[in-house]
């Protein structure tokens, strides 16, 4: 049932994204409206399956938490950003990332949780750890999306190709502000998540085991890289294109890390 629900959600997101793309090319509002409907249908299906999983108490052990909550959070943040900044283009950038995480959720082994979480079975730190990590992750994804948009907008301004993207993307200052705020929030929350995970592991004297996990080490490195990017931005040493590129490159490393350090389910065995 879960698989069917998630499959429906993924298909709806894909259809929605395709319609957003067609709308972007043709400017026909009907495609945008249908795209919105598809994404909303997928969102509802996604929410329903997650709610059922929480209600049934399966969320912690099954791996659903790690794999399906992330795309849900990214999409929720995108809906908020699109509403807050009155820009129709946010979804066009967010949905590919949502789809990427949906596909990963299908192909990764269900029992695989995020680094260090598999060993977690109980304790108050779990809720804090999970909450911080996922909120931080959503913040960082928002930062990455705004950074990508910044780079596109900046390229268009530099190259003097003021096409569709130029007209629909927000101003550089707006994107820079969103980027800075979401990155700051994301990095702090993500770091708190890592810290709470460490405290929990210490209680169980499993800290050394956690550090043997390459995913944990690479998560630390990613977090450190984002702290560096944030540090440069905060110290006003630099802003604009280079900082935006730093955020996007770090995200690419994070995805590469995530993809290469996981085990994959056999074909057809979600």
């Amino acid at each position: 049932m879960e698989t069917v629900g998630f499959f429906f959600a993924t298909a709806a997101y894909l259809a929605g994204w395709a319609l957003y793309l067609v709308n972007f090319e043709t400017q026909a509002p009907a495609f945008f409206n249908w795209g919105k409907k598809f994404v909303f249908a997928g969102f509802l299906a996604h929410l329903a399956v997650l709610a059922a999983a929480v209600w049934g108490g399966d969320l912690r052990g099954s791996g659903i938490l790690s794999h399906w909550v992330a795309p849900f959070l990214i999409l929720s943040t995108a809906v908020f950003m699109e509403w807050r900044y009155k820009t129709r283009i946010w979804m066009l950038f967010s949905l590919p990332v949502v789809l990427l995480f949906c596909v990963l959720a299908f192909v990764l082994k269900p029992e695989d949780g995020p680094a260090g979480l598999q060993v977690v079975r109980s304790g108050g730190y779990l809720a804090a750890h999970t909450g911080f990590i996922l909120s931080g992750f959503a913040g960082m994804i928002t930062a990455v999306l705004s950074a990508a948009m910044y780079l596109v907008q900046s390229y268009q301004l530099k190259s003097k190709r003021v096409g569709n993207f130029f007209l629909k993307l927000p101003a550089l200052d707006t994107l820079d502000r969103i980027h800075f705020r979401s990155l700051a929030l994301g990095v702090v929350l993500f770091s708190l998540g890592i810290l709470s995970g460490l405290f929990w592991a210490k209680n169980l004297r499993e800290l050394h085991q956690v550090f043997r996990d390459p995913k944990v080490v690479l998560s630390f490195l990613t977090c450190l890289a984002y702290w560096l990017v944030l540090g440069f931005r905060m110290s006003a040493l630099s802003r604009g294109q280079k900082i935006a590129a730093g955020t996007v490159i770090t995200f690419a490393l994070l995805v590469a890390t995530f993809v290469t350090t996981h085990d994959y389910a056999p074909p057809g065995g979600f």
Binding site: L157, A171, L172
Partner: peptide, 9 residues
Amino acid sequence: DLAEKIFEN
């Protein structure tokens, strides 16, 4: 228009 795409306002 270009200035508004750089500085927002």
